[in-house]
């Protein structure tokens, strides 16, 4: 039994590694391209470069804006994710537990939010009215408002899977609504929270459209815009563009790898039987 299992697992592992080439090859193309010279990088291929140009990364890093825009992206993406996750999980928790008619309607409104197309002009007018246009506060709240429907939806499905008996025992222990949620429920939603964190963080990090409209100062723009500017500056220099793309990719990869560990941590307890 054990040996058979091991065999199956090894076969599975090999198959999965072969399958992963579908993902790895395009990424490898990007990596190879980032260390080629200009002419070799004109058509992306899996050919090894004749010489390795790691100085491409130095060229990109020399730009003075990259640190500031990195900091902006980090600020906007992190705060947006935190605000979105806390508000959404609270709302989803109450809406699943207490299914009144009003709560159902509110949930449906959230769902509609998943599909409403953005109108920039009216959104801009509302931000003007609230005096938060062109501010970090404005853009962070706007991102949160945009991501809340999806995040609520994500939590809503999973809260239903948490047994209600837990609530009752917490009440017996003397917890109120806030204590119950933050001490008992929220920690249990860890897999979803981390998933939501990763998704919101990367959506925020990769977005370049909202800052164009709602932040009127390039000093507040994020890293992806800095990358965009390289496109014209290094026109047709695909090696430098690839290097810039990779630099932009690293932070979100870090967040994912960090977070991924926590998605998995929940399952190690009952791991493979020997």
């Amino acid at each position: 039994m054990t040996r058979k299992h091991t065999m199956i697992n090894v076969t599975k592992e090999i198959c999965m590694w072969i399958l992963s080439l579908i993902i790895l090859i395009p990424v490898a193309m990007l990596l190879l391209n980032s260390v080629k010279n200009v002419t070799e990088s004109a058509s992306m291929s899996l050919k090894l470069p004749t010489s390795f140009h790691f100085d491409n990364f130095v060229t990109v890093f020399k730009d003075g804006n990259i640190l500031r825009s990195f900091w902006n992206s980090l600020l906007i993406s992190s705060l947006t994710s935190v605000i979105t996750i806390i508000t959404s999980s609270m709302a989803a928790f109450v809406m699943t537990r207490n299914r009144t008619r009003l709560n159902r309607y509110i949930y449906i409104l959230f769902l509609i939010g998943l599909i409403v197309p953005m109108n920039y002009i009216t959104t801009m007018k509302v931000l003007q009215m609230l005096h938060i246009i062109n501010t970090f506060t404005g853009i962070i709240l706007l991102y949160s408002a945009t991501f809340i429907p999806f995040t609520v939806f994500l939590f809503y499905g999973f809260v239903s899977g948490i047994p209600k008996e837990l609530d009752e025992s917490a009440v017996i222990d003397g917890s109120g609504g806030g204590g119950l949620f933050f001490r008992i429920i929220f920690p249990l939603m860890k897999p979803v929270s981390v998933t939501a964190l990763i998704i919101n963080f990367l959506n925020c990090w990769n977005d370049f459209v909202l800052p164009l409209y709602f932040l009127n100062s390039s000093g507040k723009w994020g890293m992806i815009m800095t990358m965009y500017n390289y496109f014209s500056q290094y026109i047709s220099s695909w090696n430098l563009v690839s290097a810039a793309m990779l630099i932009n990719l690293v932070p979100i990869l870090v967040v994912y790898v960090l977070g991924q560990k926590y998605i998995i941590s929940g399952m190690t307890a009952g791991a493979v039987k020997g």
Binding site: P187, K190, V194, L258, Y262
Partner: peptide
Amino acid sequence: MHHMKPLKSLT
């Protein structure tokens, strides 16, 4: 409380 730990570390 130990449930909270991984998330805390991420924070």
